[in-house]
């Protein structure tokens, strides 16, 4: 089960991409209410989107992006059936990626 849900729709020469990533996005400034200890920062730093292998968007994120992040963007030149790849890397070096077809 991928951590990324993505939907891409081509209409009128423009492709709209919407994605939801499940991730805690901890800021590192929050205390655990039970133990009183600080919860270490854990957040996505970089999200990449590739359309047919060429980069369309690189997002650099700080901890001020909400938990379970949402990202939407548009690009031109996408056709139905093209491959769109979304990937992320967090500050612990973990990563995930997903490939989808533009619908």
């Amino acid at each position: 089960m991928s951590s990324i849900k993505v939907r891409a729709n081509a209409q009128g020469g423009s492709t709209t991409v919407k994605c939801l990533i499940s991730h805690p996005m901890e800021t590192g400034q929050r205390k655990d209410s039970k133990t009183g200890k600080m919860i270490p920062a854990h957040f996505i730093q970089e999200v990449n989107a590739e359309h047919n292998g060429s980069n369309v968007l690189t997002a650099l994120w700080g901890p001020a992006i909400s938990k379970n992040p949402y990202l939407s963007f548009k690009f031109s030149g996408g056709n139905k059936g093209d491959t769109l790849k979304i990937s992320w890397v967090d500050n612990e070096g973990k990563s995930d990626s997903v490939e989808t077809k533009i619908g």
Binding site: P63, A64, I65, Y70, L71, F75
Partner: peptide, 12 residues
């Protein structure tokens, strides 16, 4: 080819 459009959710 990316249009000048981004949408996300931030913490304030």
């Amino acid at each position: 080819n990316t249009e000048g459009f981004v949408s996300t959710r931030i913490k304030m």
